[in-house]
């Protein structure tokens, strides 16, 4: 069940992504409605993080294209915000909580420019929104997992973007942080922002999101939560490994085959 919407904020067309020539996502075609809380759900290795990274052009696509706000990505960078996985950085970096949140303003500042007073105000406000204003001067190496996640979230908030991509923001955080985050996401939705969240817990998924994307190396379903979170579709997503598919992928890598015979002209620009 793949539902397409009119006037989408995100449009993904025939997106295939490979690591070292092995495709990990095959031909994804989807559109996301504006102002929604979207959950990207699937088993381990389903390509959830890969999908959102490819959507932001952080990974090269073997085929297909992505348009956000009906524009190529380069033109809307400033309206997009990314919250990477917490473990993707070394938290033993010499920086304070405030330093990290201030990084959210770097994109708007541009090269060479130092953060202005207004940027510092924005960073402080973002910290307040996640309830971490008391930790501004704390060293990031001293934070708990939940606090690290909040800091990353504050950094994204400081960007003042219109669409947010978050990679597993609920992974390994305490219950208080999880509640705080979901509250924050709902407020953001009310302000008309779109939030795309990679999520691994089925239980809470149907409660948290109003649009769900089911993924397992290919797109299984995309649509409103009630219509997508069905027994049948979930079994389809989680049940049965796609053994042949992943074997073909391995073959492509070993034989050094391209994922597409020729790259179409329009997929490079994005």
């Amino acid at each position: 069940m793949i539902l397409q919407v009119d006037d989408p904020v995100v449009e993904v067309h025939d997106l295939t992504v490979s690591y070292d020539r092995k495709p990990v996502l095959w031909g994804v075609d989807l559109t996301l409605p504006a102002g929604s809380l979207v959950g990207v759900i699937g088993p381990n290795g389903a390509g959830k993080s890969t999908l959102i990274k490819a959507m932001m052009d952080l990974l090269p696509a073997s085929s297909g294209y992505v348009r956000i706000f009906n524009e190529p990505l380069k033109q809307v960078r400033k309206r997009i915000s990314y919250v990477p996985q917490r473990e993707s950085v070394d938290w033993d970096f010499p920086a304070s909580v405030f330093d990290v949140v201030l990084m959210g303003r770097y994109g708007n500042l541009g090269l060479f420019k130092r953060p202005r007073k207004a940027d510092k105000d924005a960073a402080m406000q973002a910290l307040e929104k996640v309830g971490m204003q008391g930790f501004a001067d704390r060293q990031i190496s001293q934070l708990s997992g939940g606090q690290q996640q909040r800091v990353f979230l504050a950094r994204a908030l400081a960007q003042n973007a219109d669409i947010y991509f978050m990679d597993e923001p609920f992974a390994g955080v305490d219950i208080a942080t999880e509640t705080a985050i979901i509250e924050l996401l709902r407020t953001m939705r009310e302000q008309g922002k779109t939030v795309v969240v990679v999520h691994h817990d089925l239980q809470s998924a149907s409660e948290y999101f109003d649009w769900v994307v089911l993924l397992n190396m290919r797109l299984v379903a995309s649509g409103p939560t009630q219509q997508v979170m069905t027994q049948e579709l979930l079994e389809h997503t989680y049940g049965g490994k796609l053994t042949v598919l992943s074997k073909v992928g391995d073959l492509l890598r070993k034989q050094e085959f391209p994922a597409r015979e020729t790259r179409r002209q329009n997929n490079v620009i994005l």
Binding site: Y82, P84, D99, V100, M103, Y106, L111, F112, K113, Q159
Partner: peptide
């Protein structure tokens, strides 16, 4: 000194730097 901010972000979180168009 001139690239202090950019180098700092590059060393801390390269993917994020990429996502904001650095």
């Amino acid at each position: 000194v001139l690239f202090y901010k950019e180098l700092k972000l590059l060393c801390f979180d390269e993917t994020f730097a990429k996502s904001i168009g650095f």
